[in-house]
């Protein structure tokens, strides 16, 4: 096939700050451009691992003595045990050093044992409810998650829509891309005064901060995904007259899906980062404000427990989006 222009082989959607290719260079626009399909950045390492395991021969050749199967099994068990034991050991070491550090005189930071002792009430009863200003950690996290869910869903809908628009239309790309490039570098909290002034209320303001934090990676990755729809698929769509909704669902969306999910995955992490900070300033029920409140009442151990929960929830959110992505996004070759 005659190559009119060569597409620069990008690295796929980059984490955090994905580069947007110039529209002249982008694959999707010229239909004769032969573009190799770039791989999405985040590959699911877990899946690769399982696949490799599955591809190993199920049975050793018949001539080999049976013990080899046992040896293989034992090796697998050992490997699995290491996967669990090593992090636990590492955690134990860190805990030990932390304990030693905290036990020195003049150190304010409580050690792990003291933290658990002091905040046992908080750890053991996440769902207590003594009025609006005194709720368990479960409630705090739940209300933060609720805000993230609303802001993030809005960001996903708006981000994918705008991404498709600027990915498909060179005019829209030229018009909007410079604006987006500036807006996406604004730190989430810088939006807070603006949104407080606009909405006059804490809750919508926090949700807006989530939205405005999460929307840029989704827009940018979606538009890159749309622009990099391989020329082959575009040609198939043109020759076999896939138009309108058939083009949308059979060519565009599946082709861009890995990019869209990369954007969604970057965004969920950023949204969770932003909510904690936003809540510190807006108050009310929420894990961010709980941490701030604990700081004001010098409950260091409560802060530490909350921070652990924040980390675990953040990880869980990331894994959930990654799981959804592996179900929908990586069906391509």
């Amino acid at each position: 096939m005659k190559t009119e222009k060569q597409t620069p082989m990008g690295k796929g959607p980059a984490s955090g700050i994905p580069e947007i290719p110039e529209p002249e260079k982008a694959g999707g626009r010229g239909h004769q451009v032969v573009a190799e399909r770039p791989k999405p950045m985040i590959t699911n390492l877990k899946t690769v691992e399982t696949k490799m395991k599955a591809s190993q021969p199920a049975k050793p050749p018949a001539q080999l003595p049976p013990p080899s199967e046992d040896a293989e099994k034992a090796a697998r068990m050992r490997d699995r045990a290491r996967t669990f034991i090593m992090p636990v050991l590492a955690l134990a070491f860190i805990g030990l050093f932390w304990e030693i550090y905290s036990s020195r005189t003049g150190v304010v930071l409580p050690g792990p044992l003291k933290t658990i002792h002091d905040s046992w009430n908080l750890i053991a009863h996440p769902w207590f409810d003594h009025g609006p200003n005194d709720k368990g950690l479960g409630w705090q996290l739940l209300s933060s998650l609720q805000r993230v869910a609303i802001g993030y869903s809005l960001a996903a809908v708006v981000g994918i829509f705008l991404g498709i628009v600027i990915g498909k239309s060179a005019m829209a790309f030229k018009a909007l891309d410079p604006i987006f490039q500036v807006l996406r570098t604004i730190p989430p909290l810088a939006w807070l005064p603006i949104s407080l002034a606009t909405f006059n209320q804490a809750n919508p303001s926090a949700i807006f901060v989530i939205f405005v934090t999460a929307v840029w990676p989704i827009i940018i990755n979606t538009s890159v995904g749309i622009m990099r729809i391989p020329a082959d698929y575009e040609n198939v769509a043109r020759v076999y007259q896939l138009t309108g909704s058939r083009y949308f669902f059979k060519v565009m969306l599946p082709s861009a899906a890995p990019y869209i999910f990369t954007g969604l995955r970057i965004s969920i992490g950023m949204a969770w980062l932003a909510i904690v900070a936003a809540e510190m300033l807006t108050g009310g029920v929420g894990i961010g404000f709980f941490i701030w409140d604990s700081w004001n009442s010098s409950r260091m151990s409560d802060i530490l427990v909350s921070v652990c929960y924040v980390g675990l929830i953040g990880l869980t959110l990331d894994r959930i989006v990654a799981k959804i992505a592996s179900l929908f996004g990586t069906k391509g070759e």
Partner: peptide, 20 residues
């Protein structure tokens, strides 16, 4: 002046949609 069903193409690189 445009692609059409009256002129079907078998592409060099098969060009099947891998998700179908």
């Amino acid at each position: 002046n445009a692609p059409g069903l009256d002129r079907a193409v078998v592409f060099q690189s098969h060009s099947l949609l891998p998700w179908l």
